[in-house]
Design a binder for these strands. Structure first.
Length: 424
RNA sequence: GGAGAGGUGGCCGAGAGGCUGAAGGCGGCGGUUUGCUAAACCGUUAUACGGGCUAACACCUGUAUCGAGGGUUCGAAUCCCUCCCUCUCCGCCA
């Protein structure tokens, strides 16, 4: 969410930012409407407050006269009139503020300088690591997974439907190993505090990180209780300090959490349907950072390096992509995607998405810090990134480390957690 | 799920229609005293949104905020209703 003041002080900047994202006319018109609403809002506030001030002095005078046993009937009558007028004006103000807020809540974040304008085709590869394995003769992970008896998609479909996975035997143990490996890496080596959050969250929490109100169709909801299954641990973890003022000496602060993630994937039917590349439920270890505004650009580099380290330890070749404005997520000002090479699928798979959300989520969630005693609280900057998403990581492992006999070599780093050096 | 008790500033805690943004205490900050520390004493201590003045801050001013939302009233922390949360006991449950 943007500051209301942006509407009157930096409208052109806001419009330009929306254009860079490829926003449609409707969104730009919404901004025009916002300008009017902001003006109306301030006029109404003045009118309301003027009358409230009058009511307050009036009431005080009533109190004084009652004490002095003087008559106050005409003051009580004028107070009643003021009250009616206030109620009427407040009704108008509520309508204006409601519309303004609704408008601000659906406007995406402004992208950072250096983020290319345009859509997906303008994404830029900014870094590469490792040597992608030749695709020749490498079987896709769904075949290997089935052959090894570690991925069972048929039975998952029976239990839940398409887009679900059963991991079994060494596959199940692999998931457990990945949880431990990633969590240990980020907590012990990278200094993140380990968090085990709820995965069922309320409306305010999802609004804080930006999934609501705009993307309600994408999340699973438990309507009887108005709760939602999280699409990513970013949601509960970023909201840890919602409506709080954190200590400045706590910043920068990192949190790492493993959770399952749930996504309806409405609108992506038919995409990535094979294997485990796009499922309704998947596992992920997520990194979240709070930082000062001055430091957040550096913190994004740091966080991205932490995610990359996970891939490097696993020995999976990857590349880092700077996303163009049109491909950058709703809450993000700047995003790097990490794509790992899957020779069996013959594609680069997005295994991590690292974003600097600047003050966009912090304003929605009201997360602030006080730089020094006596200074005004300021909004923190929030960042998040996968470290890493499991299914695609597993796909890459099964394909990258595949041997001609159908077995899969376990990378060194995972062996202590898995207790074996080969999946067979 | 049932019965009860409660939610007040950074924290503890008073207040039970007007003089209460809110006593008192703790903590924090500034100062006096002091060789240093401690103690004592004095002062200060929120946030948001408007308006004025500013290059901007500061400052001045108004309004709001006592879990949330409604209602009663000239006037609500205080009375009424609904909801949320916490605690205790009972039931149920992994």
């Amino acid at each position: 969410m943007h500051d209301m003041r942006a509407l009157r002080e930096q409208v052109d900047l806001l419009r330009d930012a929306m254009r860079r994202r490829g926003a449609d006319d409707a969104l730009l018109q919404l901004i025009d409407r916002g300008e009017d609403l902001d003006r109306d809002r301030r006029t109404l506030i003045q009118a309301v407050e003027e009358r409230k001030a009058a009511r307050n002095t009036n009431s005080q005078e009533v109190a004084r006269r009652k004490k002095a046993k003087e008559p106050a009937d005409e003051l009580i009558a004028s107070g009643r009139e003021l009250g009616e007028e206030i109620a009427r004006l407040e009704g108008e103000l509520d309508a204006v503020e409601g519309e303004l807020r609704a408008m601000l809540l659906v406007l995406p974040n402004v992208t950072a300088p250096g983020v290319p304008a345009g859509g997906e085709e303008c994404n830029r590869v900014v870094r590469e690591w490792g040597t992608p394995r030749d695709a020749a003769g490498v079987r896709p992970h769904w075949e290997v997974g089935a052959a090894l008896g570690i991925i069972d998609l048929e039975r998952a479909a029976k239990i839940s439907g398409s887009g679900f996975v059963v991991y079994r035997a060494l596959g199940a143990r692999l998931v457990r190993a990945l949880i431990n490996f990633f969590i240990e890496l980020h907590s012990r080596e990278h200094g993140y505090e380990e968090i085990w959050p709820p995965i069922l969250v309320n409306r305010a929490t999802l609004t804080g990180t930006g999934q609501l109100p705009k993307f309600e169709d994408d999340v699973y909801s438990v309507t009887v209780d108005d709760l939602f299954l999280i699409p990513t641990a970013e949601v509960p973890v970023t909201n840890l300090y919602r409506d709080e003022i954190v200590d400045a000496d706590m910043l920068p602060k990192g949190f790492v959490a493993y959770t399952p993630c749930f996504r309806r994937e409405a609108g992506s039917a038919g995409k990535d349907t094979r294997g485990v590349l796009r499922t309704h439920e998947f596992d992920k270890v997520e990194l979240v950072r709070y930082s000062t505004p001055e430091d957040s650009a550096n913190q994004l580099e740091l966080l991205t390096r932490h995610a990359e380290t996970a891939l490097e330890r696993l020995g999976i070749p990857y590349r880092r992509k700077l996303l163009a404005a049109g491909d950058t997520g709703f809450s993000s000002a700047m995003t790097y995607d990490l794509e790992a090479w899957a020779p069996g699928v013959g594609a680069w798979l997005e295994v991590s998405s690292c974003s600097n959300c600047t003050d966009f989520q912090a304003r929605r969630a009201n997360i602030r810090f006080r730089a020094a005693k006596g200074e005004k609280p300021r909004l923190v900057h929030t960042l998040n990134g996968s470290g890493l998403a499991f299914p695609r990581t597993i796909a890459c492992l099964l394909e990258h480390y595949q041997c001609s006999d159908g077995t899969v070599v376990v990378p060194e780093a995972l062996r202590p957690y898995l207790g074996t050096d080969r999946l067979s």
